[in-house]
Amino acid sequence: MALDIRLSAVPLSVPAELEAFLAGRTADGAVVTFTGLARDRGKDGAVVETLTLDWYPGMTERSLRDLAEAAAARFPITDLILVHRCGDITPGEPIVLVATAAPHRRPAFEAADYLMDRLKTDAAFWKRETGPAGARWIEPADEDRDALARWKDETP
């Protein structure tokens, strides 16, 4: 299995990433993708002009790899790509692309869902929103923790 894990300080080209991921794929019956976008409003409705994802070189990449390896070990997938932005991101820009491939749809969906739940709570990023009211740090929300908790009750 190939795991393509990357951190990018430049905007993502989701179509190009997906085209490369799909190229030559003949044994898999399912590819599931998720693209996360930066929003122009915070959870409280405040205007967000910039989302900044601070990272620690080496540590953040390792955390992404660990999460991807956990998804690959847990679900019968054949391939996975995880490309995550870092640095300053403007509303509407892709933050993350996850794609999973499997012979059948269910494992591809579950692996992508699991990986996104883990990324929201466990990835080594420090998030800051900046808008007209200033800057503020963002922590994982209760609903993010609740989404992750459902995976802890299931066996791998």
Rank of each mutant, 00 (worst) to 15 (best):
residue 118 R to F: 01
residue 59 M to G: 02
residue 3 L to K: 07
residue 2 A to Y: 14
residue 122 D to Q: 13
residue 10 V to H: 10
residue 35 T to H: 02
residue 38 A to K: 07
residue 148 L to S: 05
residue 46 A to Q: 13
residue 48 V to I: 12
residue 67 L to E: 02
residue 38 A to I: 00
residue 112 A to M: 06
residue 70 A to L: 08
residue 91 P to L: 07
residue 9 A to M: 05
residue 78 T to I: 05
residue 68 A to N: 02
residue 10 V to I: 07
residue 23 A to E: 12
residue 115 L to Y: 01
residue 109 F to K: 01
residue 125 F to S: 05
residue 138 I to E: 05
residue 116 M to V: 11
residue 39 R to G: 06
residue 26 T to V: 12
residue 95 I to M: 09
residue 3 L to T: 03
residue 4 D to I: 09
residue 140 P to L: 09
residue 54 D to T: 13
residue 79 D to A: 13
residue 27 A to N: 15
residue 126 W to P: 09
residue 32 V to C: 11
residue 75 F to Q: 03
residue 31 V to G: 03
residue 68 A to M: 01
residue 63 S to L: 08
residue 80 L to A: 00
residue 99 A to L: 08
residue 81 I to S: 10
residue 72 A to V: 12
residue 117 D to W: 01
residue 64 L to Q: 07
residue 138 I to G: 04
residue 110 E to D: 15
residue 144 D to S: 08
residue 119 L to I: 12
residue 111 A to F: 00
residue 9 A to P: 03
residue 129 E to H: 11
residue 125 F to R: 00
residue 82 L to S: 04
residue 81 I to P: 04
residue 46 A to S: 14
residue 17 E to W: 10
residue 146 D to R: 15
residue 96 V to T: 12
residue 117 D to E: 04
residue 54 D to L: 13
residue 98 V to G: 07
residue 123 A to H: 01
residue 113 D to E: 14
residue 25 R to H: 04
residue 58 G to N: 00
residue 15 P to T: 07
residue 103 P to Y: 11
residue 63 S to T: 07
residue 65 R to E: 10
residue 31 V to N: 05
residue 70 A to E: 14
residue 90 T to Y: 13
residue 35 T to N: 01
residue 65 R to A: 07
residue 46 A to L: 11
residue 35 T to F: 02
residue 133 A to V: 05
residue 41 R to G: 00
residue 50 T to Y: 03
residue 50 T to E: 12
residue 12 L to S: 08
residue 26 T to G: 02
residue 137 W to S: 12
residue 75 F to C: 05
residue 71 A to E: 11
residue 5 I to H: 02
residue 88 D to K: 14
residue 126 W to R: 15
residue 30 A to H: 03
residue 115 L to K: 08
residue 124 A to H: 14
residue 135 A to N: 11
residue 66 D to H: 11
residue 151 W to I: 03
residue 19 E to D: 15
residue 38 A to C: 13
residue 16 A to V: 05
residue 92 G to W: 08
residue 12 L to C: 08
residue 57 P to M: 06
residue 42 G to F: 00
residue 15 P to W: 09
residue 74 R to K: 11
residue 68 A to C: 11
residue 39 R to K: 09
residue 144 D to I: 10
residue 63 S to W: 02
residue 66 D to R: 14
residue 76 P to Y: 04
residue 98 V to L: 12
residue 78 T to Y: 01
